[in-house]
């Protein structure tokens, strides 16, 4: 089985590597690019732990082959924090105790980063629906719902401050 050379952009950096066609994108990210923040859970699309942002859309990296990512722009959980400064979503998860073992967290964060950019002022019902695509076996979801709502509020405040600044 012939290997293919793959060139792609991951977290803003050009990256490349070789993979056989059967290699899943999640394994390529973890094993070949050393980005182990993305977790491989159920490996059939149900649990959502492996969710990454692929050309702007939240997708399951266990249901894509690495060869399909040729030329794509991918963001993983490693792209969220700025050095030691957590992303608003991460900070909200931290403050609301929205994780226990943390296995599902990378997929939830990446899913919610896309969700909040499309739905910046979600109702609790919308947050719950958006979370239905990711399984968490520790928390019972209550604190995850709270954390996403807190992050939405903070993002809205940041946007408001930015528009005020621009208007000056």
């Amino acid at each position: 089985m012939t290997q293919r050379h793959i060139r792609l952009n991951v977290n803003g950096q050009p990256r490349e590597g070789d993979a056989s066609p059967r290699k899943l994108l999640v394994d390529f990210l973890r094993e070949d690019l050393g980005l182990t923040g993305t977790h491989a859970g159920c490996e059939h699309g149900v649990c959502g732990a492996c969710t990454v942002v692929f050309d702007g859309e939240a997708v399951r990296s266990c249901l894509l082959f690495a060869v399909q990512a040729e030329g794509a722009a991918i963001s993983t959980v490693e792209s969220l924090a700025d050095g030691e400064t957590l992303h608003v979503l991460q900070q909200s998860f931290h403050e609301c105790h929205a994780l226990q073992c943390g296995f599902c967290t990378p997929g939830i964060l990446m899913s919610m980063s896309v969700f909040l950019s499309e739905c910046p002022a979600p109702t609790e019902q919308q947050v719950r629906e958006a979370l239905s695509g990711t399984l968490c076996r520790c928390t019972g979801y209550q604190n995850i719902v709270r954390a996403v709502q807190l992050a939405a509020t903070r993002l809205a405040a940041t946007r408001l401050a930015a528009t005020r600044l621009a208007a000056k």
Partner: peptide, 9 residues
């Protein structure tokens, strides 16, 4: 149909 992460592909 499924979840938005599935519908995106």
């Amino acid at each position: 149909i499924a979840h938005f992460q599935i519908r995106s592909r």
